[in-house]
Amino acid sequence: MNILALILSLSFVMIAYFLSAAFKLGLGRDLLITTIRATIQLMIVGYILKIVFGFDNPFAMILMLLLMITVATKNAAKQGRGLPYVFWKIFITITIVEIITQGFLLGLKIVPATPQYIIPISGMIIGNSMIIANLFLNRLKGEVEIRKEEILLVLSLGGSVKQAIYPILKRSIKSSLIPTIEGQKTIGLVQLPGMMTGQIIAGADPIQAVRFQLLIVFLIMSAATLTAIVLGFLIYPGLFNKEQQLDVHVFLKKGK
């Protein structure tokens, strides 16, 4: 795609902008900011990728992956404000998920060990883990809020913190995975996944593109499950203090 075509594609933004103005939706400013942000972010990423691919140096690639994990962690950690070491717990979780999934892909030589494969696939894994971490923490917050009495009951009967939180943890893990699983059920029927579309547009054989997409679907399902479970087990001890009392005042505080 040449620059002129890219500039012409801005017409789509203009359509949205004029419609927003005509119907007084008040979205003009947001549309403008989003367009500028998306352009700058993607341009930067494009150039960084070009540099990293050019270096062909594993350290540059690892640095890039660490940067991606840090940004994803920072985003998800907002949802867990008030929990001890939440940033590091999410960082460790996403790193574990990344190592396991990439280790599997590279170890079995499913994809070549080059930055051109590792970085985009990692982007999908890390981004997906970030969303799952967000959903999980959000669900956990809701469940703890609603079922505080049950937690207290189990503790008061001599149960351990793990026994008290386990049903809530299980439910939060399950709920955070539902959108991923449901989303995959209609894959290809309503819309073609982004990566597959990209490959087809770039001239790849659709069957090859489908194989790659299936790989990503399977990968995302396992990465999602791993994220929710690993994060769940790292997070739950922080909900209690050393006297085994539920200590979630800051975590449950609304609007913060």
């Binding site: 009495e149 503790l155 001599g158």
Partner: peptide, 11 residues
Amino acid sequence: QELRRYVGIAF
């Protein structure tokens, strides 16, 4: 855990 079994509570 032993304390909470020794001292039960009803809410």
